[in-house]
Design a protein around this nucleic acid. Structure first.
Length: 315
DNA sequence: CGATTTCCCTGGCCGC
DNA sequence: TGCGGCCAGGGAAATC
């Protein structure tokens, strides 16, 4: 379940691997969610950015600006964007040098065949994505390839004119980045109090702040001592919640993301933030702050944990 | 137009 | 061992 810290971890790894690479050819799984991947063929990746949980790769094509010399092109001038949302189980990986990995169409290393040196070098079996779940593959000019695997197909791929996000309404209406100045306690309080929806629902909506999913929402609310079903925030609560959202996301990035089951980074490695969770998934266990047993509930159709003692319901 | 509901997907796990 | 049933859940579309 990649949220902002997981996507940012992936972005940081992809940036040096992909910037300057040209897509020679592309393949997509036959589904409208992924078919746009082939539209990146022929383009050069000039930047790897992130907004909320969306990965945005700037694309430029030779001949887009006939007068430009190649060296003049820079990030921010991309004509198009390749947008990838990882959904629940999406994974991106970049193959090693040409020939270092078995071809997906072969069964080498799968059943009885010799295992690749790459597969042997990694610890967890889950770090090797199954070819059955390949959803898109971009062949690069130097023989490497960028692959997108997604077991449950909740992910999504789009190629759009730069900044034209009309086909992705959540991205188009995305709230501020959590570390941006504009994500202020005042804005958080105003938006939450202007709606009658539960504060956790608002955090998950992506409109109040970008990039928070179920894990980090529970963590932030617990840390800020705000009840997930609360519908109003005091000034103090808004200040605590704003700070807590930043704190838990920053910790998530520091620890390379949270791996509960599916999440892996570009190298196939797990994150370690799951060892630092205080609330998410801990219903029935004692609150590490006060000792009361964490309660389980459902908010916005999402499993929710909270401490009834620390997180008082206001309204 | 905002709020609410439904649907998309499949592997892992549980009970029988 | 096999199998039905249930759960996880972000975002888009449909509906209220």
């Amino acid at each position: 379940m990649p949220e902002l810290p997981e996507v940012e971890t992936i972005r940081r790894q992809l940036e040096p691997l992909l910037v300057g690479s040209t897509v020679l050819d592309a393949w997509a799984f036959p589904s409208g969610k992924f078919s746009a991947a082939v539209e990146a063929s022929g383009a050069t990746i000039v930047s790897v950015d992130r907004r909320g949980k969306y990965l945005l790769m700037g694309l430029d094509r030779a001949g887009d600006r006939a007068g430009d010399s190649p060296g003049v092109r820079s990030a921010g001038t991309a004509a198009e964007q390749l947008i990838v949302h990882l959904g629940m189980t999406g994974r991106l990986s970049v193959s090693q040098a040409p020939g270092a990995e078995p071809h997906p169409a072969t069964d080498a290393g799968l059943r009885g065949g010799p295992r690749s040196s790459w597969a042997e070098s990694v610890a967890s079996p889950g770090s090797v994505p199954s070819d059955a779940h390949l959803r898109a593959r971009w062949s690069l000019h130097d023989g490497r390839a960028l692959s997108f695997h997604d077991v449950r197909r909740f992910g999504r791929i789009a190629v759009v004119p730069a900044g034209d996000h009309g086909s992705l309404p959540t991205l188009a209406a995305l709230g501020p980045e959590p570390f941006d100045e504009s994500f202020s306690p005042e804005r958080l309080r105003d938006m939450v109090n202007a709606s009658r929806r539960a504060v956790k629902t608002q955090l998950l909506s992506q409109r109040v702040v970008a990039g928070v999913g179920n894990i980090y929402a529970d963590e932030a609310l617990w840390r800020a001592r705000v009840h997930p079903s609360s519908r109003r925030l005091s000034r103090d609560e808004a200040q605590r919640l704003r700070d807590a959202v930043r704190d838990v996301l920053a910790a998530g990035i520091t620890h390379g993301g949270t791996t509960l089951r599916d999440y892996r980074d570009v190298s196939g490695d797990e994150g370690s933030n799951q060892r630092h969770l205080d609330c998410y998934g801990r219903a029935g266990e004692p609150c590490v702050r006060c000792g009361d047993v964490l309660r389980r509930s459902v908010v916005d159709a999402r499993a929710t944990a909270h401490c009834a003692t620390c997180q008082r319901r206001r309204a």
